[in-house]
Design a protein around this nucleic acid. Structure first.
Lengths: 123, 123
DNA sequence: CTGAATCCGGATGGATACTG
DNA sequence: CAGTATCCATCCGGATTCAG
């Protein structure tokens, strides 16, 4: 989605951008992983199970563009690039933590609601 | 996205479901609208600018399934269906409010980061 | 090692028409 | 009124290949 499909269903969305980002599974996983410490491209690729090089690159670029992640090229050969959370990134991370907590607390309720709903639907 | 594309990139995602939901623009808008009070289908359709009948129906069903929204069929003719937030829905709404606040506070920083990034890219 | 470019299948969402 | 069904354009993400 990146930033609105067509480009202009504007609403009030100052938030849409952030929602688009955290609505993206990979972004969240990358942020969570980087919260454990700075990390390099391939290391991230290995540890984030299932992500493709392409999506990791795309995700990192988006996060970097939004200022959540810093990209540090170490002048060595072969080149190494280290990614880390910025202050803004940490701020977002703490928001995510809040969401995670909420999600954990309420997941049983959601699960239950779904089962009830699905049972009725099957019948 | 609904619930994981392929169906099984599992991770630790108790949160993924919620993230998928609030990552969806329509869901957020519907919740926000219902937070202003119960509402009927066509009324929602009119007030949520740009949504199609289909997407409203799909969105409402998802929200209902997860227990965020209640669907109340009034036994009159012609049939009326009133949607409203459940307690769980209100709980989610307050989380969203937190996110909105955070987003508002940090949007300047993000905007700035983007401009900086894009300027460098253009050059 | 760290990516960028290309190709491509599948899912998503819009438009439209139809129904109870 | 409150949806459902169908068709179709679009976009996303995976796999693969190439490059600095």
């Amino acid at each position: 989605m990146a930033n609105r499909t067509g480009g202009d269903r504007n609403y009030d969305c100052p938030v849409r951008d952030i929602l688009d980002r955290i609505g993206d599974a990979w972004s969240v996983l990358v942020i969570l992983e980087l919260a454990r410490g700075p990390c390099r491209f391939n290391a991230l690729c290995r540890v984030i199970d299932g992500i493709s090089q392409r999506m990791l690159a795309v995700t990192l670029r988006r996060l970097e563009r939004d200022g959540f992640v810093s990209r540090n090229v170490l002048p060595v050969a072969p080149p190494q690039v280290e990614y880390a959370l910025t202050d803004l990134g940490w701020s977002l991370k703490s928001q995510l933590s809040g969401l995670y907590e909420w999600a954990d607390n309420h997941q049983p309720a959601i699960r239950q609601a779904r089962e009830r709903y699905d049972d009725l639907a099957d019948a």
